[in-house]
Design a binder for these strands. Structure first.
Lengths: 220, 220
DNA sequence: CTACTATTCAATAGATTAGTTGAATTAAAT
DNA sequence: ATTTAATTCAACTAATCTATTGAATAGTAG
């Protein structure tokens, strides 16, 4: 009897984490927080939610043990509670990609040709960077780049991409990356670069995965 | 399609998987399905839900891409849609265990003394089995036991545990194991055994790890 | 002390979800 | 063809969740 209760309670606790993952806005917030520490205000801006709404979602994430926060002056800064959260998000994306037809369809219709989209593995990229064979573009906003980026990467937020292309030799291979495996920024950048005749690819996953896989990180 | 819509739709799709994980009953069903193919009827019995309710939860799991089903005669059999689902469940449990205080508390208060909960290492167990000092319980379903088990282990699925206890001397040390490091079956078994006054522990990890570590395996 | 800012709390309406019941399918056995 | 068993569907209530609003709190600066 109490054994059944124990089991039930335990599953209920596990379900709290699942529940927290059961809303698109919260997943988007997690994606941003995975880049590094962020204030409520920042998160509200990038997600397009109201501050109060953002705050409430953040508390749910906190109660589920997915994020932790600390107070610094006026602001409350949130960050992931650990790297295991990134693993969890990756596992979630994996399952969704492999088993939900609609995800494939979405990616398909948005990114016209899928097989050209093949991502460059991290270690391949490391080698090619060492040999100077490739330009790595970090297409995230400046603040995120400064908080940490792939060594040798150039920060070119999407809004500045057109201007930057003037300085980029046409024959240069380009690899772009952003927040994570499904961040649209990198898709967008690759699409535009190809339009201009560059040989562009996107990096496997994004910066959070790069970091949690133990690869070197530069800060500005 | 605008980039913002794409992003939003994508996160919404991912959230479907999260939602499916956001209910204790569904997590329990997944746990049982992870043991192998199961019919709706079986799942309803072991989870204690009504058949109709079980069926509804299963459809949600199916729509989220977590399980697949096939029809065989009168029955519909469900199984996990892939091994990545096991990874996802592991990641979920990991986060819950590491970051939710209540989980620790639960395990703590229910399994009175926590250090007694310490898992028994594989080689220690081997020795004690050889000396006949301990009864090893395999609490997995019969089919899995037959496919391979720890030498000398007795197959006692949880449902049959109460009945089996009549034949078990009170002073006997008992070690239980199941599918893997986080399988609740073993916890459950240990909890019930302790309630009855046995000196019960669980084995380190589970059978797959035992086997892959090169320890001997019996088949029925 | 007062004004200001960032965040959280509290109350609300509208949407979604869980679980129950009983009827409707589907496939096999008589 | 009829009966039987396993599963799903449909309708309903109670509970929970989302997003919005406006007020309350805590830290900072003048």
């Amino acid at each position: 009897m109490s054994s059944a209760n124990f089991k039930h309670d335990l599953f209920t606790q596990f379900a709290r984490v699942g529940k927290a993952l059961g809303n698109g806005n919260r997943l988007e917030l997690l994606e941003y927080i995975a880049q590094g520490e962020r204030s409520v205000d920042q998160l509200a801006k990038v997600s397009g939610l109201t501050v109060a709404n953002t705050s409430q979602h953040l508390q749910q994430l906190r109660q589920a043990g997915l994020v932790v926060c600390r107070k610094q002056g006026l602001q409350v800064l949130y960050q992931l509670s650990g790297n295991d959260v990134i693993d969890l998000l990756d596992a979630l994306r994996n399952v969704a990609e492999r088993h939900i037809a609609e995800v494939d369809q979405l990616v398909d219709t948005y990114l016209t040709v899928k097989d050209e989209l093949e991502a460059v593995p991290r270690d391949t990229l490391m080698e090619r960077v060492k040999e100077g064979l490739v330009t790595v573009l970090d297409v995230r906003p400046g603040e995120e780049y400064e908080a940490g980026h792939v060594p040798g990467a150039v920060n070119v937020p999407l809004s500045e991409l057109e201007g930057y292309l003037k300085h980029l030799p046409k024959k240069q291979d380009v690899v772009a990356y952003c927040r994570g495996p499904h961040c649209v920024l990198a898709f967008d950048a690759v699409a535009r670069l190809r339009q201009r005749g560059y040989s562009a690819q996107r990096m496997e996953d994004g910066f959070p995965e790069w970091k949690s896989a133990g690869y070197p990180v530069d800060t500005a």
